[in-house]
Write a protein that binds this DNA or RNA. Structure first.
Lengths: 268, 268
DNA sequence: CATAAACGTGCACAAACGTGCAAATCGGCA
DNA sequence: TGCCGATTTGCACGTTTGTGCACGTTTATG
């Protein structure tokens, strides 16, 4: 028996590990209470509060009296997120657009990175774009020269697009050449993951409706794992990463048969 | 066993969480009663009143004797009056928004006038908005405080929204309190008309899915007739016209049982 | 006008909080 | 092995926040 046993229990875990587990609890239950966490992890409330402070500082939770809740950022400023890393996303988008051939039908998920891709698509190349995000649809309508098909359904404000059953049903009746599911987390061994249950189901439907899948991921998504699995890595043909992406990480995906495309460096 | 109880219950919740749930109840039921809340959350009425006071201070509810209601549907706040949009459409929109009651479900067609209406809607009044226009959906998502349902389908660039068979099918499965079909032309004797075949079919479906219909028309639409009929005038309950609309024209609609609402004069 | 319910305010108390500090643990490095 | 710095942790301190109660006032209703 290994003496440094895998932490099946919640007692005696490393500080960082504890924070991850707190985050997992928060994501699954929607809230955490400081006193309860102190009891579960067998540490003082002070340590729990320190953890919550750090998580809140990274924007991963919202501190409230008595514990923490899911950040309001999850359900608020989508408008803000659009202007987060413009240059990095543009560099990624330019690389991703290189995979698109004239006349193809694309399935584009909601998300800021995907909006950058839509903005970088060449107009007048006979492209058909199917999307569940009103923002992306509007962007393409304004640019003209695209055939746009909108996926309807109830819209999640935090996601910025339709992801419910109705949306999945519509995608099932479609067929695309290429799809761009927004990545929440992608790992060479464990595949593609999402933070939300319905969102992940929708991404899976997208992938199943497309011949090829392109995952475009900023650095923070690489090697991360979220709560809900979207697909095995075998379903992903292309991965577009930033210039700054670790060489070893890129190799890890390559050996699984994924074509890794590296974006140009950004001046910043 | 259930020592660290998940928030399935309404008892033993964090203060801030409780406020969120009160707000959720308010949005779904349109009103909350202080005594009932005190019982449900197992706190004193004093705490409930404090919660309601804070929510009211943030403009999220309206305090009344015995509890709270959704904030009144007020006209557009000053800041929106300063946008660069045409003043005439804003005046129309402000008048149209006066017909909306808290908690209602609205069906809003594509079009610039309707976009002005969406921009003038009060946030946080528990309104559900169904629209076929990505632009309007995006606008409401950015403003927050709305439930948004998107009608999908192939998008016509000239119309700015989905109007095909698929869109009509989705509308048929819905039910709304109020609908705002964009008017191409409206005539007291011949009813509501549109320029495009599919667009007109979609507008008709909207009207059939709604309890009441509000037509908002700029002066140039009044007394005009287009190619495709959308509906008889009997299906239209409200007509919002500009301040400058002819008195005789307004009377012509009134005698057909249509409630005519005249917008305020614009300074221009 | 009478009455009960709902309300606001001030107050006391406990729980939760932040901060500073000392003890404990761990990983390098001579 | 022994020392040093960094990190983590628990404790003590004073402070803030939420809560319920008592009291007097306002509001709705018959």
């Amino acid at each position: 028996m290994v003496k440094s046993a895998p932490p099946a229990d919640d007692r005696n875990v490393l500080p960082e590990e504890r924070q991850q587990r707190i985050l997992a609890r928060l994501r699954s239950e929607g809230r955490v209470v400081a006193v309860e966490l102190a009891e579960v992890f067998e540490v003082s409330e002070d340590s729990i509060r320190r953890d919550l402070r750090e998580l809140a500082a990274r924007g991963l939770c919202k501190r409230v009296y008595g514990g923490a809740l899911l950040p309001a950022v999850t359900l608020t400023p989508l408008k803000q997120r659009r202007t987060e890393h413009p240059l990095r996303k543009q560099a990624l988008a330019r690389q991703a657009v290189g995979l698109v051939k004239p006349g193809q039908t694309l399935l584009i998920d909601a998300g800021t990175t995907n909006a950058a891709i839509a903005a970088a698509l060449p107009a007048g190349s006979g492209l058909s774009v199917i999307t569940n995000a009103p923002h992306i649809a509007q962007l393409l309508l304004d640019r003209e020269g695209f055939e746009v098909l909108l996926i309807g359904g109830r819209i999640s404000a935090s996601i910025g697009g339709a992801v419910g059953t109705q949306a999945v049903e519509q995608v099932r009746r479609l067929r695309a050449d290429l799809c761009f599911p927004g990545a929440c987390a992608i790992d060479a061994a464990r595949g593609l993951w999402g933070f939300d249950s319905e969102e992940s189901l929708f991404k899976r439907a997208m992938i199943e409706a497309s011949d090829e899948t392109v995952v475009v991921a900023t650095d923070d998504k690489l090697g991360a794992v979220a709560t809900y699995q979207v697909a095995e890595l075998a379903r992903v043909q292309h991965l577009v990463v930033e210039h700054s992406a670790d060489r070893a990480t890129r190799a890890a995906f390559s050996v699984h048969g994924v074509l890794v495309h590296r974006a140009d460096a950004v001046p910043g």
